[in-house]
């Protein structure tokens, strides 16, 4: 068990270090000679910017380490806060989205999966697997745009106006949580369903049915306990998806969270003038990398511990 934990931790550490080293790759020399013609300036700029030197790289790394050692911080933002404060300020808001949507989608997903399986041969079939397939296949950003437009249009016709943009109000958080939870919920539902389906031709179910156990009880107590292992092994995928989607949700709803700040710190440029630095907020980016991979580390450790416990109790892996 300890081996697995140490191994996971080791991989996390190496991945994070590699990412940090990528961030520190020098972004070239942005200065240009203004006496040149405009075209030559552009050429010089492009050459300077894409010029890689090991010296500058080494410099970047040592400066960062020295600064961190001396100040016990990675730097200050332009708002004269420490970077750590800035990261924490935005991360707090994102956590309000990530954690509830993760928990919500896990619970609802399992319930939906059981429901899908339960109504498989019944009249309500169309509400079962079909809806899961629908929500799994339709891109969630399409639904997101639809819901946004629908709410805005409804507000025109006298329905209560719901605040969709920003991060301060409760409704902002609810909207964000719902958007983030849509896909993972149905992903888990599908997982639970197919895990149940896989067991459906096992002999123990025949035995249970012949003894007169109610269908629902078979699913709930007997079959479900065999699903947990499959679900826990996918928790990491779900968290990866949520974090990826966080970028879209935060940018579309102007939610000022960690993904939004990370995006801003990377300075994705739409236009630039010759001579302007192509820099990014290195220290902010580094800390967000640690934070994001850290969240995934926690989820992985949790799912590995859970799998360990489940295997010890003797669940079958399906």
């Amino acid at each position: 068990m300890w081996r697995v934990i140490v191994q996971t931790f080791g991989i996390w550490l190496s991945v994070t270090l590699v990412l940090i080293l990528v961030v520190l790759i020098p972004r070239g020399n942005h200065e240009v000679d203004r006496s040149l013609s405009r075209e030559e300036q552009m050429e010089q700029y492009e050459e300077g910017i894409t010029d890689f030197s090991w010296e500058a790289y080494g410099n970047n790394v040592t400066t960062l380490i020295q600064y961190a050692w001396k100040h016990k911080s990675l730097g200050e933002t332009i708002h004269t806060h420490s970077v750590e404060y800035e990261v924490w300020r935005y991360l707090k808001k994102s956590m309000w989205l990530i954690v509830p949507s993760f928990i919500l989608s896990s619970i609802l997903g399992v319930l939906k999966g059981i429901y899908d399986f339960y109504v498989k041969h019944r009249k309500l079939k169309f509400l079962g697997e079909k809806t899961t397939v629908f929500f799994l296949s339709v891109p969630d950003f399409f639904l997101l745009l639809m819901i946004q437009v629908a709410l805005i249009t409804l507000a025109h016709y006298g329905f209560p106006r719901i605040s969709l943009y920003g991060s301060e109000e409760v409704s902002n958080k609810i909207v964000g949580i719902v958007f983030l939870a849509i896909y993972p919920t149905f992903y888990i539902a599908r997982l639970t369903y197919s895990s149940l389906e896989q067991q459906s031709n096992e002999d123990y179910i025949r035995t249970a049915l012949s003894k007169g156990t109610h269908r629902f009880k078979i699913i709930w107590t007997h079959m479900l306990s065999n699903c947990w292992l499959a679900i826990t092994s996918h928790l990491n995928t779900i968290m990866l998806y949520i974090l990826s989607n966080l970028f879209i949700v935060e940018l579309i709803t102007s939610y000022r969270g960690a993904a939004y700040r990370f995006y801003k710190a990377l300075h994705v440029r739409g236009s630039f003038t010759v001579g302007s630095p192509q820099s990014i907020d290195t220290s902010l980016v580094i800390e967000y990398i640690i934070v994001f991979t850290g969240v995934l580390l926690i989820v992985q450790l949790f799912s590995k511990l859970a799998a360990y416990q489940l295997l010890r109790r003797g669940g079958s892996s399906s």
Binding site: T16, L19, V22, R27, L240, L243, S244
Partner: peptide, 15 residues
């Protein structure tokens, strides 16, 4: 499994 997809793409395209 430690890096979200969009994260890594954003990372490289800003280089």
């Amino acid at each position: 499994s430690f890096v979200p997809m969009i994260f890594i793409v954003l990372f490289f395209i800003t280089m």
